[in-house]
Design a protein around this nucleic acid. Sequence first.
DNA 1: TCTCATGTTGCAAACGTTTCCTTTATTATA
DNA 2: TATAATAAAGGAAACGTTTGCAACATGAGA
Lengths: 322, 322
Amino acid sequence: MVSIKDIAKQAGVSISTVSYALNGSPKVTKETSARILAIAKELNYIPSAAARSLKKRETKIIGIYLTNYSGAFYGQLLQGMMETLSENGYELIVCSGKESHRFLPERMIDGAIILDATYETKELLSHAERGHKLVVMDRRMDHPNISQVLLDNKAGATLAIDYLAEKGHRKICVVKGPDISFDARQRLEAVQKAVQRYSHIEYIEIDGDFNKHSGEEAGKKIHQDFTEPVGVFCLNDEMAIGMYNYFSRTNLRIGEDVHIIGFDNIEVSQYIQPRLATINYSKHKWGALASELLLNLIQKKQSPEHERINVSLIEGDSVRKR
Amino acid sequence: MVSIKDIAKQAGVSISTVSYALNGSPKVTKETSARILAIAKELNYIPSAAARSLKKRETKIIGIYLTNYSGAFYGQLLQGMMETLSENGYELIVCSGKESHRFLPERMIDGAIILDATYETKELLSHAERGHKLVVMDRRMDHPNISQVLLDNKAGATLAIDYLAEKGHRKICVVKGPDISFDARQRLEAVQKAVQRYSHIEYIEIDGDFNKHSGEEAGKKIHQDFTEPVGVFCLNDEMAIGMYNYFSRTNLRIGEDVHIIGFDNIEVSQYIQPRLATINYSKHKWGALASELLLNLIQKKQSPEHERINVSLIEGDSVRKR
DNA sequence: TCTCATGTTGCAAACGTTTCCTTTATTATA
DNA sequence: TATAATAAAGGAAACGTTTGCAACATGAGA
């Protein structure tokens, strides 16, 4: 491997001069600098990230921690993050799996964005305590080294219930998410509060885990107990799609017998029939904002400790007037 | 930051002894080792990845290069990779974006798996030339430092055309993929060869780019020229889903007027109505195999230079007898 | 008692940078 | 012309590890 040393030798200057030249420091004259740069290119010099980060104590890399990539909305989310970060000279890498947790403390990454309910809060706190910078998107944490960007789950869930009620539904069923998920808990809580406002509504809860399969299972349960049209709020779109799949094999029709609304507005929701009603929010903005807060934390700039992402209702033929 | 030096001081031994102890070398006695380990834990010692990789010239990290995360099959693919890699003490990180190309030459990663048509072959070749290890999943390359795992696109495309022909279709339309994609080119080539075997078949090509939107566009075109039932081979499932969406707004029925078969068997293909006929292959195995070949390359073990992933036909109600 | 093998630990160089501080050369000022 | 100020380049330490080799202690065999 050709190093700064080789360049120095070739150029007949000291390694410090080479380093300054390579970093565009004004301490070295234009001519020497140009000569050094030329030699570097000629020798095919590539800096060693390890050496640099050992010395500078930074890597210019941000890690985003995800549980499973399969989820459908990561595309836009990551896009939003990458744009913001690369504008500021940072790279984004996606980390997954227990072992990659060590990337933060071992300083392979300068900061982390967390969207992984399996990452323990206790562990995150100890990182923050050591001085590492974090942004959490899936829980609430209070620490000077941690910022948060959360969805307005409560508003979304309330919109969904109100929408069903407004369409005349008197029997409402919610398909829950996993307890481990902050979003699931918040959405459920808001649902419970919202239905209380409608004394005439019969309200039922069914377990779910945010995956398609549990949506199918929930569909089966609804089918078994079916007596009259029912409005179903699946706490995410993925389960709604599973439920579509279940009912496609039955004599019950979505938008007639079973009315479904989801949450997330993942891409395929626009592509299934009938169009799924859902709660929408900008994944791009969510990612961008998280990155921005993280950069502020790293650069010790002030920024609001926590931001909230707005949501809105998207109507769809999966919910019709009863 | 507490370093190996601090531990040495605390334990009253040299730093080399600490290093040996930390790495479980038999050169240091059990007692000293235990004492050192205890002190390390007590001081909350965390090794510096930078220092280690500077010295050892390895990071134990593999990078997978993807164009866009949005694609629907990455979940299982990455899962397959992670399993194989973590069994061997490696971590996987997902890299995306032009700037992250430098991770390989700067030795932030020990090797790379390429599934990103925008990564130039020339650039990959120069990395290989410098001694870096690569596995390509989206092109053919011949170099001692490069292995490849390709899909059996030809077999898949042939299966698709034969399936349509077998169902009595005499008018067959293929929705192409982007020229930049190796898979798209191979599939198209095989299609062209396959249709030649059926002299009675009317064959049409429509442009596409592997995204949903181009599937919709292709649907529109097919609709305009519609005279009789047509069999459509979308070169990937994503475009097929776009086409479903288009036809849901028309009077033409999928599986009756327009018969569609896709390629990839992405997850939602099982969830749309009617069930999409498609070409299936194990994404998990694809990822696992790619990782395995890369590890062999890194550990200088022998392995076949290139492997092929088998494909199979999945029938669906989107294609019926004409 | 001396030598030798064995087992345990320490020394110091090396990995490739960055950066503070010093040295040397050059020009301006008195 | 002597001195100060400025500009350019170099020296060397430091970042935190790993590892080849040297040093030392211990006990066994002669």
